[in-house]
Design a protein around this nucleic acid. Structure first.
Ligand code: MN
Ligand code: MN
Ligand code: ZN
Ligand code: ZN
Lengths: 140, 140
DNA sequence: GATTGATCCGATACTTAGTCTCATTAGAGT
DNA sequence: ACTCTAATGAGACTAAGTATCGGATCAATC
């Protein structure tokens, strides 16, 4: 349900407008990752009158709040996934686009080692794992 | 020097054309990451007559050969870094754009654990580390 | 060194993602 | 209900990237 997104937006002190409710519903209805273009297509299919720019604006806002996270697909597309606001990483199914979240399982040791070897101080990292989800594994 | 790129291209069995030599030289002259737009600007500044499309085409080709790798910057831009063809990851200096390469230091354990928890089979991963290089650390 | 054919080229048109501006609307606190 | 500001949709605009195509050029062969 989109209630979660809306509640979090309310929390963030921004207005709960009509278009935002509608777009949030579209996002909630999706599974796996989606692009801005997907949402724009959804919206126009349902004849919601929301403007293109409004969708980009809401995605930015949600990303700032950590409610949605940007994923760079291997093919170069920019997608988003609905998200817990805490730090974690994403498993992306290359077959169906399903997403699983994993929290840090040992990454900190890796970054510490990389820092030691390179002399860099590490401020942030991005780890994306690509593979096949349980469904797609058994389906084939 | 760009000789390394050219040798590798030759190895790959493609033609060593004039434009490719010139673009390779531009890449070799860069340090840190660069975007297609950077190269296009470099080329036009030097009045090389190379076409925009040729630059995109060579970047694709180099990326296929693993001589250059695409990095998705935190701000969403697509950049490239000159690269060893073997698997490894990149440390990106958020201040000056310098790059260091680190090979797998314990990532496999992380992906194995993520796979166990999620049921995904993991086929590939992408790890990017962002921070400050030794130069930029001491410069401030 | 000339011939030749596939590869590669630049020009140009096109598509798509994303941003910006601005006049109008509508949310939320009073 | 009133008000003031945040947010909206329309549309122009920019920038990234792709597709097409006739002409140039590389490199293998003779
Ligand atoms: Mn997430
Ligand atoms: Mn590299
Ligand atoms: Zn799947
Ligand atoms: Zn630096």
């Amino acid at each position: 349900m989109s209630d979660e997104l809306l509640r979090a937006l309310d929390q963030a002190g921004v207005r709960l407008t009509g278009p935002r409710r509608e777009i949030a519903a579209l996002i909630a209805k999706r599974n796996g990752h989606f692009t801005a273009a997907d949402l724009i297509a959804d919206a126009s299919k349902r004849r919601l009158g929301v403007g293109r720019a409004t969708i980009f604006r809401l995605l930015d806002l949600l990303a700032e709040q950590g409610l949605v996270e940007r994923v760079d697909l291997p093919d170069g597309r920019h997608a988003y996934v609905p998200c817990e606001p805490s730090h974690h990483h994403h498993l992306v199914c290359v077959s169906c686009g399903a997403i699983a979240e994993v929290d840090d399982c040992g990454i900190d040791a890796v970054t510490a080692e990389a820092s030691r070897r390179s002399g860099f101080s590490i401020e942030s990292h991005r780890l994306e794992l690509f593979g096949r989800c349980p469904n797609c594994r058994s389906a084939n």
